[in-house]
């Protein structure tokens, strides 16, 4: 019995060695990636332990864990912080509405471009509507500020013609609306591409059969095109659900960069901007990390849950 085990072991190690030697080139190629992900993704993941400590930069992560362990105290403190729940609610609200709005706008844009018969105009329009995706939020926010600010073209035009100016950057509700619309402005065209490609992959036979049955164009969209993009849409929705709590730091940071009105800033404060403010104002690292960890865990749980629900409904999941 023992002999067999030993020989099995030798065999295992022998074949292991052979396998390593035969793939040494590929292993060499992957080493930078292993180092990269270990350093820039896994060390920060290990760093979440800071959330359970009273972090002290002299002690470092390890020292803080062994000497300043405080358990869930940081979480209790951030949950007690009244700003935190407002921010959390904002994040959920802005993040989820953004997913819904961008999904609808992308599908609508895809339907329009797919249905339109004018080839040349379609090509031109597609270049135009996908372009803003490639601008940074620094630029896009400056554009929106230049045009919609109190001294921007719109308000100057309105006041010149005796109308009430619209204070997009001073009213919390209007400013939130501006967040959603600027997101559509920037991303609708680009996100539609994937749906257009999926629509182009739907078999023409289906449409021909529908024609024979005398279906109208809207009926064809409803019964063929939309079901045709359903798997892609579900896949992308699951992917985006994990980002609900991200809600767009770049956008909000740049759009609020010139604001001083606390009502407006509070109305669009999200978890990421809160962590950034914590970092800037030198709040304890333990608490800021706790907020970040809270966000990551909820995001991860959301992806898993949506994936399970999608699978229960008979769709293809991602995990």
């Amino acid at each position: 019995m023992e002999k067999i085990l030993i020989s099995k072991k030798q065999g295992f190690f022998y074949s292991l060695k052979k396998r390593v030697v035969s793939s040494r080139f590929l292993i060499m190629m992957i080493i930078p990636a292993i180092i990269y992900y270990a350093v820039f993704c896994y060390i920060p993941m290990y760093g979440v332990l800071i959330a359970f400590t009273d972090y002290n930069s002299y002690l470092g992560i390890m020292g803080s864990v062994s000497q300043n362990w405080v358990g869930f105290q940081n979480f209790q403190e951030i949950f007690r912080y009244p700003h935190f729940w407002d921010t959390f609610k904002n994040t959920i609200f802005i993040g989820s509405l953004k997913i819904v709005i961008s999904f609808i706008s992308a599908v609508l844009m895809a339907l329009i471009i797919n249905e339109l018969r004018m080839r040349f105009f379609k090509k031109f329009a597609q270049i135009v509507v996908t372009f803003p995706h490639f601008l940074s939020w620094v630029v896009v926010a400056s554009l929106f500020i230049m045009i919609l600010d109190n001294t921007g073209v719109l308000n100057n035009f309105l006041s010149k013609n005796g109308m009430e100016p619209v204070h997009f950057f001073a009213d919390p509700h209007l400013f939130r609306t501006l967040l959603f619309s600027s997101d559509v402005w920037k991303e609708a065209g680009w996100s539609s591409i994937i749906y257009i490609a999926t629509m182009a992959g739907i078999s023409t036979d289906l449409y021909e059969a529908a024609d024979i049955d005398g279906a109208t164009r809207l009926q064809k969209i409803w019964h063929i095109t939309l079901p045709g993009i359903k798997p892609t849409a579900i896949l992308l929705l699951i992917m985006s659900v994990g980002g609900v709590l991200s809600a767009g730091f770049d956008q909000i940071f740049n759009m609020t960069s010139r604001l001083t009105n606390p009502d407006v800033i509070d109305a669009v404060n999200i978890i990421d901007t809160l962590v950034y403010q914590f970092l800037q104002t030198g709040m304890p690292e333990g608490q800021s990390t706790a907020i970040g960890l809270f966000k990551s865990v909820i995001g991860f749980a959301l992806v898993i849950t949506t994936d399970r629900i999608a699978k229960l409904c008979g769709e293809r999941g991602i995990i």
Partner: peptide
Amino acid sequence: WFGKNFVMNMILVTMFFGGGLIPYYI
């Protein structure tokens, strides 16, 4: 090749979970 699945999973995990800003900053 030896270890491919391990590396692949190691990379895919990072798409769904991260340490957050503060540990990265440190």
